[in-house]
Design a protein around this nucleic acid. Sequence first.
DNA 1: ATGAAAGCGCTAACAC
DNA 2: GTGTTAGCGCTTTCAT
Lengths: 348, 348
Amino acid sequence: MKKQSVTLVQVAAKAGVSVMTASRAMSGDGYVSDETRNKVHAAAKALGYATNTLARVMKGGRTNVIGVVVNDLGSVVVNAFVTAMTEEARKCEMDLFIYNSIGQLDEQTQRRHSQLLHGLWDGLIYVLPRMTDEYLEALEKSDSPIVLVNFCRRETTLPVVQGDNFNAARDAVASLIAQGHQRIAFIKGSHWTGQSAERERGYRQAMADAGLRVDKHWVEQGTYSEQSGQEAGMRLLALSPRPSAVFAANDEMAIGCMNAALEQGIKVPEELSLIGFDDVPSASIVRPQLTTLRHPIALMAQAAVQELVRRIQRQPGRRQRVEFPAEMVVRDSTATLLATPRRRAKKA
Amino acid sequence: MKKQSVTLVQVAAKAGVSVMTASRAMSGDGYVSDETRNKVHAAAKALGYATNTLARVMKGGRTNVIGVVVNDLGSVVVNAFVTAMTEEARKCEMDLFIYNSIGQLDEQTQRRHSQLLHGLWDGLIYVLPRMTDEYLEALEKSDSPIVLVNFCRRETTLPVVQGDNFNAARDAVASLIAQGHQRIAFIKGSHWTGQSAERERGYRQAMADAGLRVDKHWVEQGTYSEQSGQEAGMRLLALSPRPSAVFAANDEMAIGCMNAALEQGIKVPEELSLIGFDDVPSASIVRPQLTTLRHPIALMAQAAVQELVRRIQRQPGRRQRVEFPAEMVVRDSTATLLATPRRRAKKA
DNA sequence: ATGAAAGCGCTAACAC
DNA sequence: GTGTTAGCGCTTTCAT
């Protein structure tokens, strides 16, 4: 720490009081006469004194800092969460640091974190976490305040704030069915957070509710990337008869699928309806604009920060798992299926 | 800090040595017999010991943490920088935390930071910083390692890593002139980092080099937002004669301008050529795809981290200001001006 | 090669 | 109201 420039000792000396009195005057709790307080404040200002947070932490104090751990800050959704959380944290008079853990959270990284971060944060929020079960278990045992956002891969004792993927997906697919679609495909994303699985569950539920069979070729595995969506799209569009609608686990894959369709001269939405998830900016830039589903990110971010703050302050936490309904954004990539063109698409 | 679970004291006790020996064994410097070291390591592992970074810092040690301060994490460019820096930091065996200071850095926030961060970071990188002169001066006086990225609003004694805005802008505008354009407009961005001013300087230089006059109505003030670009575009396209090309200080504004043109039925690039800056993802999604300029973000991020690490290790820093050439990405929003349609655009 | 003591800057707990 | 004592977990002396 290279000898902090100005310490409480100097402030106290300048103000002609004891260190403890200076401490009380600065922190605001404990009895200090107005006169003394003013003297101390004046001295502190004159010297340009700044509290050494580390030293305070060493004594068990709060830092008023929230840590947010993400796996992929480049993701638009993650980014939106982080930004909204930063604003909400500020409202709670807290600061917020972001740790971009590229890749999976395993025991190794866990070590580093608990070492490095222990004591630095008052609490931690994991946004769309990709973590091993071991890591999660370690977190569950920890006694420091933690909140998970959009994690539903498995049950946990930690508080979770999440968007409703199942119902959103079911309703979206139901709306396709209502438009006359029967051969509806689904492109999965990575399994990390469990969101893709929930969306798939919603998809299957809607199909089942309508008494429609799900052909095993209609469910493709992607990786949330546009590229993977395009590849999955190629495979789906090569089927005969081909699906008349595709629901992708996120917008990027839906856009990739759209590109695959356009490449083959298949018109969207006339010949192929598409629905994505997340409502990223690109969704309203591509033509046709993408119909999609959207979590209320700002609300969720607020809820997560507030829940964390509550736990930091040892107030009774709210419910253990809070779920927010998603919203469907209908744009131009979905249309009623007029006639069912039973032509066999044989072209490569 | 709520009583750290396992401390060196316990490890030492378990290994049957003194705390100091345990410390030496863990940190690796100082003489410790192999046997003792092994005993200590075993004990540490068994107990799940993790060094308390804070305590170490209190004694003047390094944290191996780099802090990155940004003003707007939502910006695609900022985000790309941060991601690249995180990767580079990891290569240097450092961790990297991000602080998203929404809005301007002034004396108030400066206080908080120097307080909170002092001792926590080994060094700080400011990416596209928006700071008051007072803040910058405080930074210049500080003796902790600091690197600025893409800041050129004014001279500074701090090391700066930046992209070459002037030459990039000049060459881009020169290429428009080579395509026959003469009435070329420029849309400025916010003044924070000074990058817009440099791009404007390049624009004016290219015009002057070609002996072209810059009509004062051709230079519009925007705010880097798509909305502001659209508004500036409306004003520019209402001029008579109207500009045949627009160079915007960033892609978002160029896209806004493109939308303004499309709304008025002005064809891009046939009737209006457009060049942006940054090469954000949207630039290749819009139709026509946007011609733009791009800083080598990954290289710059690496340079910034490496320079910072050098200064942290008290190695002789390299040059005080490093500039990277930008690259022009020619897409479909620019075209040769065939005939100069001198028709008066009178429609509102 | 190992250990003992001192102290980084701050604040809870107790005096006065 | 204010001062004194002690100690957070670690590492830098200095001694052994």
